[in-house]
């Protein structure tokens, strides 16, 4: 257990180092790319660019620049954004609750509905219900999330907003839970649903495939031979072992989304989360923000995969260390 944690922490450090170096190189060492020019606005004089370079330390050697940036992120925690000239870390900390609200809600919806769909499809295998549900699931994973968001907005914000079903939907944006829980909820219902569609489809398919594969396992036959009820065979034997894959995938996807992967949903619904922050910083070459958000994202993804390994061992005794 101790070696597991040590190995994972070391890997986390390696990943964060590699990712930050990679991002740094992408933005500083790519020929023709110049953050100073980007910051200087339109038609800058050589003098302005030089001043900016000096002010932000961009005229120093690359390793020094990298070191300084890491120091400002991890040690003094006072890295300043090129764009807004505010501290980056508080900015990310204020965006994180938005992303967490979005991802948590969507995750609840997608877990519940994908399990129901996957179970129903597997149980009703051989009837029309199974192919019907699987086609729906395929459609779910074939819809671009940002486009679905736009269609949802078109319906709930404009075309059918007068209709009683959608008249409660507040304008796009985010209201903190602490400020108005009801408005927080109302504003997130459609982003949650939109974000979860892809994952419901994907997880339902994975679960169904796993259920059917497990159904052919000898131990399921043993369970039946024991005289256990079909419902118990399904829930305690087939579903229980099928959940191993499901849970591992969930951990990874959840990590990616919390780490900024819900970007498209945040953009289309105007939610000021980490993804949106990253996107804005990327398009304006605001390197300090990019650096911090990418490290933040990679941190969550790596953390999630470590947690998944732990949960995996808990779910599957075969991989537990003796």
């Amino acid at each position: 257990m101790a070696t597991f944690i040590v190995r994972r922490v070391l890997w986390l450090v390696v990943v964060l180092f590699a990712v930050s170096v990679l991002v740094f190189l992408i933005f500083f060492a790519t020929p023709g790319v110049d953050p100073a020019r980007q910051m200087a606005g339109r038609n800058p004089t050589a003098e302005t660019i030089k001043n900016i370079k000096h002010e932000f330390g961009l005229d120093r050697p690359l390793p020094v620049q990298y070191g300084l940036m890491m120091k400002h992120i991890f040690v003094s925690r006072d890295l300043i954004s090129y764009g807004s000239h505010t501290k980056v870390i508080p900015e990310i900390l204020s965006a994180a609750p938005v992303t967490l609200s979005l991802v948590f809600g969507a995750a609840v919806i997608w877990i519940v509905f994908s399990i129901l769909t996957g179970l129903a499809a597997a149980v009703f295998r051989g009837t029309v219900i199974d192919p019907l549900l699987m086609i729906l699931a395929l459609i779910g994973i074939s819809i671009p999330v940002f486009w679905l968001g736009e269609v949802v907005n078109l319906v709930t914000q404009s075309r059918l907003h007068g209709f009683f079903l959608f008249s409660w939907v507040p304008p796009l944006g985010y209201t903190p839970f602490t400020q108005d829980p009801l408005l927080w909820f109302e504003g997130l219902v459609f982003p949650w649903l939109t974000l979860s569609v892809l994952y419901i489809g994907f997880y339902a398919r994975v679960l169904r495939a796993n259920l059917i594969e497990t159904e052919n396992e000898d131990y399921v036959r043993t369970a039946r031979a024991k005289g256990i009820s079909e419902r118990r065979v399904l829930l305690r034997h087939t579903l229980r072992t099928s959940m191993i894959t499901f849970v591992s995938l969930f951990g990874l996807d959840f990590g990616v989304l919390v780490g900024g992967g819900a970007l498209l949903t945040e953009v289309v619904f105007g939610l000021p989360g980490v993804g949106l922050l990253t996107y804005h910083s990327l398009t304006s070459l605001d390197l300090p923000v990019i650096m911090t958000t990418v490290i933040y994202g990679a941190f969550f993804i790596t953390l999630a995969s470590a947690l998944v390994d732990l949960v995996y061992a808990w779910l599957d005794p075969r991989v537990r260390p003796a």
Partner: peptide, 21 residues
Amino acid sequence: LIWAFPVYLLAISLATVLLTA
């Protein structure tokens, strides 16, 4: 390592840099 990089963020980083050159 590539896997640990959020897919969209990696694509966006590369795209932004290439497009602003």
